[in-house]
Design a protein around this nucleic acid. Structure first.
Lengths: 352, 352
DNA sequence: TACCCTTAGTTAATCGTTTTACAACGAATA
DNA sequence: TATTCGTTGTAAAACGATTAACTAAGGGTA
């Protein structure tokens, strides 16, 4: 950019040596110089608009104060961007910056991404995934590495993931405490940690609140068209068991499908049917009528903690043991949960 | 990270000077050495896993091949992340990397962000906004700077923005060509380039297709709760003029509100009412039933072009004149547009 | 033989800091 | 008087590349 003044220029203006200028401005050995000399240096720096060249400093100090972020679709996933902001703000607060690159889940892609980060001599790397899963990492990992919204297969590394079970339990508790006994679960059926953790939460809540016909009331379907899946699944579920008064959807998109099906079935939310979701996609949860009660994934927190942990690792003298941290997300209570309807069988009218 | 081999180590293993190793590996003067020597250097580099230290190279060459990205909520906005990916992939294709930081629209914040980028001696800066607007930039701008999804006030800079008018015209044309004559516009009313450009598109289409009662059929409302606004606005609009057979919503969230209002009014989409949106928020446009026909903002393209232009500027010998480029987004045709219903007045039934 | 080219490589300066080891000087101490 | 010590500062060697300028050797030509 507009070429900046160097330390040499500052030192010349202040009529001291480069070393003196450096020591004064870095504040590393303040007591060493008379206040008069120090002030002369500071004035010169100020006058020339001096700022230290991080390249030169990094080269000399063998430390860049730059963190490599290898993102796996994080920036382009609608709701995961907060993770980046969590990292960035935490890093910036400690005078670290973020070098950004995008990779896929493949070992080779991650290895190439790490290589590039190593070329830049970043102090550490965060691998961030756009959803909670296990990642197969290459060999030859950098010394300082942490993972956000995922964890490593076959190796112990710092990782920060959502506490799927306790997060989901917050909305399930709301259903339970509202007195529902016939509660459905509509979930993705794939082998994801999120699916496992949320199903577990459902089983815990079912036990805790004495919900009926648990097995019958769980619908697990694999689908990418999630809203449509929710729509179909609720029709199936309600056809199978019209006693259902509440539905826990695996995510907000599925919940949106449930809303649609319920509307067509003439069920009023929340009077006739309570619904909860997961993800707090504001576009959906805030736009549905009534607003959807749901849980937010702790994206910001995962990002923040990952960055803080990485910096701790970078700056620590001794080896820190790796830890896997599960974080509970926040609940957002809107209008989609109420006490169960009393009349169990109800006239169902279809529109059209 | 795992401390890498230096050029010195490579040169020692290959029994040549550091200069020779550098010249061979950088390929800058290939003809200079015998094939045998060159091969020895390459073998040594390979064996030691040598990769050039970009810090050292940058310091010497006075060029970092790093681009600073000052994002204004781009990463955290659900649909804008594609812009980052557009920049990143374009940059990476030319061996540039992205240093990421987040700022606000305030002059001071941008100035501070630029300062930080300058500390890292980035070769250029992209300022990217999460929506199309004019930005007030500080003085003392870096030599190489471009703007994505925004443009600078009071100064000519490269900028890449959506062509709001021609983008929107694509869906309006679809309505026009389907034969609608009574078309409503439900728009935000604030003073944004997007509002202006889309309204202009509406007026052009109205003229072109001979739409009736234009002034009466435009509802402009300021609101942050856009879905609710769309709901209210359509009720207002339809109450005022039940002849309406199509609605152009300023964005998908408003369109979602129109869907809800239409449903309550007993209007079937698209048989009784055609609807188009803007933004292609897949969460909404793909989830609504029927799917919403809408336009996507050219986020990826804006990012890509901004990065390419910036690199061109960085690598160009001579001054390039700044240019403002408007880009048309892609249309996504789903099921929300049909030919107008023939019976103009129709029995309207409310649910509940 | 003297001169000039080419070829194949090397030397050394440079980018802008940081930091270790040293120097100069006066004051205090032995 | 000689020695030691604190104070205030400087010289110079890194960090790891790049690159302009040079050299040495060999061959061709006048």
């Amino acid at each position: 950019m507009s070429s900046r003044a160097t330390l040499r220029e500052v030192s010349e203006l202040a009529e001291v040596s480069v070393a003196t200028a450096s020591l004064v401005l870095s504040g590393k050995d303040g007591s060493r110089f008379t206040e008069e000399t120090a002030q002369r240096v500071r004035d010169a720096a100020e006058k020339l608009g001096y700022r230290t060249n991080r390249l030169a400093r990094s080269l000399r100090q063998q430390s860049t104060r730059v963190i490599g972020l290898l993102s796996i679709e994080v920036a382009t996933t609608p709701y995961a961007g907060a993770m980046v902001e969590g990292m960035r703000s935490a890093a910036r607060a400690r005078d670290y910056d973020l070098l950004f690159n995008e990779v896929t889940f493949s070992k080779e892609s991650i290895a190439a991404g790490l290589e590039l980060m190593s070329d830049h001599r970043v102090d550490g790397v965060i691998i961030a995934s756009y959803y909670h899963r296990a990642i197969d990492l290459p060999d030859n990992l950098p010394k300082n590495i942490v993972i956000a919204d995922a964890y490593a297969k076959k190796i112990e590394l710092d990782s920060f993931v959502p506490d799927e079970t306790n997060s989901y339990l917050q909305v399930l508790d709301l259903i339970g405490k509202s007195g529902h006994k016939h509660v459905g679960l509509i979930s993705d059926g794939r082998d994801y940690p999120a699916v496992k953790g949320r199903k577990e939460a459902f089983l815990i809540a079912a036990e805790k609140y004495g919900w009926h016909d648990i097995q019958e009331n769980m619908v697990m379907m694999n689908s990418d068209a999630e809203t449509e899946m929710g729509y179909n699944a609720f029709n199936l579920l309600f056809g199978r068991n019209p006693q259902i008064t509440a539905v826990a959807a695996y995510n907000d998109q599925i919940a949106m499908g449930v809303y649609e099906a319920a509307r067509e079935l003439g069920l009023n939310i929340p009077a006739d049917l309570s619904v909860v979701g997961f993800d707090n996609l504001e576009l959906i949860s805030g736009a549905l009528r009534p607003g959807l009660t749901t849980v937010e994934l702790p994206h910001f927190e995962m990002g923040r903690l990952a960055a803080e942990r990485l910096i701790e690792r970078v700056e620590s003298e001794d080896e820190l043991p790796p830890e896997k941290v599960a974080i509970v997300g926040d609940i957002f209570v809107r209008g989609s949960v109420a006490t169960p309807r009393t009349s169990v069988s109800r006239k169902v009218t279809r529109i059209h």
